[in-house]
Each structure stands twice: as C-alpha cells, then as structure tokens.
Amino acid sequence: MSILNVEQPAVGGERIAPKLHTRVPSHATRVSLLSADGLCKSYNADKPIFSNICLDVKEGETVALIGSNGAGKSTLLKCLIGVLPNNGGEISIFGSGFSKAPSAKQAKQIRSDIGFVFQKHSLVARATALTNVVHGLLGRPGSWRGWHHALAQNTWREAALDALDSVNLAHKANERVDQLSGGQAQRVAIARALVRKPKLFIADEPAASLDPKSGHEVMQRFVDLAKKNNITLMFTSHDMQHALQYADRVIALKSGSVFLDQNSIDLTPADLKAVFDG
C-alpha cells in the first residue's frame, strides 16, 4: 500500500493522488445524519474553544475531523453527540434536535445508536476479548448479564463472536486483552463498537497510540467495516495521511472555526498546509 506523504510534495495547487479505497463522490442526495448550526463551546468566556461551527454529516459518509493539537476536535466531537454541553447553537442527530444538551431520554437514544472507539483502546485489560465485545451491549435490556461473556445470553455471545470475526480476531476470543498487541486491542475496541450495530461510529484518534503500520491496518479495517455495514464514520486525527486516505470528506478546525470542509479527493497539499500554518 502506498502511503501519501503530504509534507514532501510541495506542489502548491496540485490535487492529491486518488485514494485506495472506494469513495462516494457526492453526498448531496444522502440523508443528513448529524448536523450542527452555529455551535459554540467555551470553558472560559474570554477564550472560546470554537464558535459558530456549521457542519453536516450524511448517512454512510466517512468524515475526518482534523486540526492541530488543542484545536478542539475532541471537544467538538463530544458536543456533537451530547456528551459535553455546548454554549450555543443547534445540533440534530438521528433526526432529533437539541440545543445546549440533550434530555436524558434523548441522550440514551443517541448513545444506543453510536459505536465509540477511543484513542487508547479503553478495554478492560484483564477481561477476555469476547467479554470486552459483549460489554458493547451493556445498557441494553438484560444487560445485567453482560459483565462477562459466560453470563451473557447466547444471542449476545454469538453477536460478539461475529463482531470479533469481522475484525479477524475470532481466534483470540478467549485471550485476555493485556495479552494482545496494541493493534489487536484496537481491533477488539472496533468490534465492541460494531456489536452495537450503530448508525454512527465516533472515533477519537483511533490510531494515535499505534505504530504507523498497525495504525494503517486498523484504519483500513475500520473504514471497510463502516462502508460494508453502511455505518457513518466520523473520526478525529492529527495524521494527514489517515484523513486523506480513509475519509470521504475532511473538516478542518482552525482558530475555533471550520477552516476547511471539502471532499478529500479535492484537497491539495497547500490546503492542508494552511490548516497547520500559523
């Protein structure tokens, strides 16, 4: 697999080479899954993290949210799904709208349709891969049995094993997570998100804690799974290669606002350079 290097070819306006996975050229006809209008967030009134953010994520899209460290990528992601309250603006997710923060009922509904993947795998290290994937179903009815795969109902165990098989780790089902490599653990985390059959994958720097090779393997598998199951994927990354190679669309944050929102296929190195300059 050739990997794009956006720093080296300093060809100002030239478009970047085509990506390796299948792209969806236009999302104009697709249904909006997640949108924000005039979204603001600040912990300190004098220093907003971001303001007036407008974006629209369509069903089935893969969107990369990029920006330099401290640009507010993770905070924006958390505000969009109602994990963090915002200070202004409107959010619509899965056809349900809220401002500031979702109601408890809305929050529960939103969470049930999202599969989360975190920077560090955030798995229970001393539990097996299968138990960790079964954990993905906690919060559903009957979830008191979901602490351990041995207690879970058969349908849950089968679903978890299927999800592990999707990330090619069914043979590691009974191994403890702390015995797996970083890349394998992150694939277990993806399986835990997948087992929920979500409408939306939210991933915060999913490959940041991995070496480059494992990072690309994890991202490739993640994107393939999202496409195959028609799950919208929104991920943050500070790795330009990942954003260009795996996302249909790139949204860049700079100085607290959306600096760039473009199909990745149309991006030029100069566009990306400008995101991180200054």
């Binding site: 994990v83 975190f118 955030s122 798995l123 919060g139 008191w144 602490w147």
Partner: peptide, 19 residues
C-alpha cells in the same frame, strides 16, 4: 479509561462495577 468507555455506551454504574 475502560469505565468511561462503558459509561459512554450507556452502562449502569452497577454494570461498570461488575464489568
């Protein structure tokens, strides 16, 4: 980290304790 991940999923405090 693992507790926050399960909390984000919507697991109850008791499930987080046991799981």
């Amino acid at each position: 980290d693992s507790q926050q991940a399960l909390e984000a999923i919507g697991a109850s405090k008791f499930s987080i304790l046991c799981g």
